[in-house]
Design a protein around this nucleic acid. Structure first.
Length: 657
RNA sequence: GCCGACGUAGCUCAAUCGGCAGAGCAUCUGUCUUGUAAACAGAAGGUUUGGGGUUCGAUUCCCCACGUCGGCUCCA
């Protein structure tokens, strides 16, 4: 070994003595710079540099730095858990978005109080400043050292083979050399704990600036329900207390926007237990929002060449045999029932019925593209553990459309469909999108000709690329019968929701024997495109509630205007103003309750009504009203006609106020 | 479906060790009404989610069902 090493540091050539660590070379403090990126690979600061290394610092606040921080915090948690619950066997503990988790096999699931104890012990470990020390081991050494950890032994057996980043196992064992990280007491050097791990890690537990345990729950070993269930603890960790508080604040903000909570508070919908899980009812105020959404959609679809159809809620089961859904999704459908010696089903989707409409008579190429649409009620037997507010229900209304076109029309049709859905979503106040292209992989769940898939995937990709939006690939994410584009929208606090999907289907046209007569007299099979705009109206309504935190733009607000008299004597005047507003199609109420004016303002404010119109002696004398907006701002003495114009204008332009 | 926590008035939440089930808001009734987030008083409201068990006695302990919440798996 030569006494000098030539390395590249931050783009500049440097000569350092042999035995220099990356930490020394980078002059890292171990707090802000917590690791090194060496020739593209992340390494511990304590690792020794080699000749020719290209070394860059990894800051704790960078994405890689945060991942290292979180992974190290996961180790601290696992150590604390094993100290408090010595029988706990280790699963895996990778960093994830905004935090980390670690899975444990324990007799008894963790109780929320247990988490407090674990967190307390973790703080002690962090304070103690244990050092993370890397050590290479052979497979056999690792097996010997970890003989009490059956799951780790399983991972060693999987090393480099089946271990994939999908189930997080890659964090523990990499491709080549196995490594164990020892946690050492900084004073005595005594071994406190150790774990099989690829690393890298922070230099010391003291470099963990902020963390918090969040929740626990069951999780299948290596992500398969066929495997035993372990207990997972989730935590979060950040480069500073401020960043952590910011994150926790975001979670609080999300909680305030929870559509289940706001739906009850604003009297929009409920889930009566008498009906059963996942079956919502819409109250009058929620009904108005739905109606506005549906009216708007009917208009837009009418303008865009869609034709409205209606189909029943139940059908002979045979229809879903024909469509091919039964073998794939039969378990997710409500069970069959028998009528007149025939088995019937409640429909989980509308497309087979639309196919029957297409097939009801001979079709000409001149009719294509044929765009059928319907607000179709469908019922799916969602498993009990997944039902969730309006976003995962058992009964819902799809704003569903099926487009039948020729192969030649497919590209143009997809492109215009994408433009259509984006334009609609923008009208609902969503403005940030990205697209996801879900394609087949080599799994055997996909059916159909590879050539069809290729052609359709290319058409989808082209339309997606032409939209100019960011496109994320999702290999293997397609439905069994065809690829799809889904539109992901960001809401007001940056969360993304999967909304519209545009999906190609080569399966059903064949299974239903759909055909049209081409110009040359030949019979051809049409291409079928599924298009759901909102996913479901229920779900989209839920998304809108969260996006707007219940404060809908005026056009969607259940009550657009509340008239508030300063005193009882001013009520008739406001009734008169309300009548004029009603004539312009505005949803207006006058609060004639026995409350004080201040209380009425409070009530309207809590109901998130966009416009409050107050009237007292001064206003009446001037033929005016006074606005109070949701912001608390006011505008006094506005002539009634101007006030009406302002409100009508805001509704018509679909703006937020 | 699986793992766990939880379920008290319409809502938010109390009720000591197993010993008379309570408050605020909302509701109803009455009194009172003048300028931008809560007038005052009274009344009513409960098979403590449902069923079973233990006990002299169950909101409280045990079992089952239903529902909600969190997590996993799934999501045409």
């Amino acid at each position: 070994m030569s006494a000098e090493l030539h390395i590249t540091l931050a783009g500049a050539e440097r000569v350092v003595a042999a035995g220099t660590t990356y930490g020394e070379a980078l002059e890292a403090d171990g707090r802000t710079v917590v690791a090194a990126r060496v020739n593209g690979e992340l390494r511990d600061l304590a690792s020794h540099a080699a000749d020719g290394d290209v070394v860059e610092p990894v800051e704790i606040s960078s994405p890689d730095g945060r991942a290292i921080l979180r992974h190290s915090t996961a180790h601290v948690m696992a150590q604390a858990v094993q100290e408090l619950f010595p029988e706990a066997k280790l699963g895996i503990g990778p960093p994830v978005d905004n935090g980390f988790y670690y899975d444990f096999d324990v007799e008894q699931a963790f109780h929320p109080d247990d988490l407090k104890r674990v967190e307390k012990r973790m703080r002690e470990i962090v304070k103690q400043g244990q050092q993370f020390s890397r050590r290479e081991v052979s497979d056999d050494e690792a097996r010997a050292e970890l003989s009490a950890e059956p799951y780790k032994l399983e991972l060693i057996g999987l090393k480099g083979g089946a271990a994939s980043s999908d189930d997080g196992a890659g964090v523990e064992v990499g491709e080549g050399q196995l490594t164990i990280y020892d946690n050492l007491d900084p004073k005595s050097g005594e071994l406190c704990w150790k774990d099989l791990c690829r690393g890298p890690h922070l230099p010391s537990t003291r470099a963990i600036p902020a963390f918090k345990l969040m929740r626990s729950g069951g999780a299948y070993w290596r992500g398969s329900e066929k495997n035993p269930q372990l207990q997972r603890i989730y935590g979060t960790a950040w480069e500073s207390r401020d960043k952590q508080d910011e994150y926790l604040h975001l979670l609080e903000e999300a909680e305030k926007r929870d559509h289940r909570k706001l739906g009850a508070e604003l009297d929009l919908f409920s889930f009566p237990p008498e009906l059963g899980s996942g079956l919502p009812v819409f109250h009058p105020k929620g009904g108005i929002i739905r109606k506005e959404m549906e009216d708007y959609m009917r208009r837009r679809q009418g303008e865009s060449g869609y034709e409205f159809v209606n189909t029943p809620h139940i059908t002979k089961s045979q229809l879903f045999e024909t469509s091919g859904h039964l073998p794939w999704y039969g378990e997710d459908m409500f069970p069959p029932f028998e009528l007149d010696n025939t088995e019937y089903r409640v429909k989980p989707m509308n497309c087979p019925m639309h196919n029957l409409i297409f097939r009801a008579r001979g079709r000409s190429y001149r009719e294509l593209p044929l765009r059928l649409c319907e607000f179709g009620s469908v019922y799916r037997y969602e498993k009990s553990g997944v039902v969730h507010g309006l976003t995962r229900v058992r009964g819902m209304t799809q704003d569903d459309s099926h487009i039948y076109c020729t192969k030649e029309q497919m590209g143009g049709e997809i492109k215009s469909l994408l433009a259509f859905v984006l334009s609609v979503l923008r009208d609902f106040g969503l403005s940030e999108f990205y697209l996801e292209l879900s394609t087949r992989d080599d799994s055997d769940k996909f059916i159909g000709e590879q050539a069809d898939w290729d052609e359709a995937t290319a058409a989808l990709r082209q339309a997606a690329e032409e939209s100019g939006l960011q496109l994320v690939d999702d290999p293997g994410g397609a439905a069994f019968y065809g690829p799809k584009i889904s539109v992901q929208a960001k809401d007001a606090i940056g969360r993304t929701w999967q909304l519209s999907t545009i999906q190609l289907d080569f399966n059903q046209p064949k299974r239903f024997g759909l055909e049209y007569q081409a110009a040359d007299g030949s019979r051809q099979t049409p291409v079928m495109i599924h298009r759901a705009l909102f996913g479901s109206i229920e779900r989209f309504l839920g998304v809108l509630v969260e996006h707007y935190a219940g404060a809908f733009p005026p056009w969607l607000s259940p009550v657009q205007v509340v008239g508030i008299p300063i005193a009882e004597a001013h009520t008739p005047y406001l009734h008169d103003v309300a009548k004029k507003l009603r004539e312009r199609g505005i949803r207006v109420e006058v609060d004639t309750a026995d409350d004080r004016m201040q209380k009425k303002i409070r009530n309207a404010q809590k109901a998130k009504v966009p416009f409050m119109l107050l009237a007292g002696d001064d206003d009446i004398a001037n033929g005016a009203v006074s606005f109070r907006y949701r912001s608390g701002e006011q505008k006094n003495g506005v002539p009634v006609e101007d006030a009406i114009a302002e409100i009508v204008n805001a509704v018509e332009r679909r703006v937020q106020v």
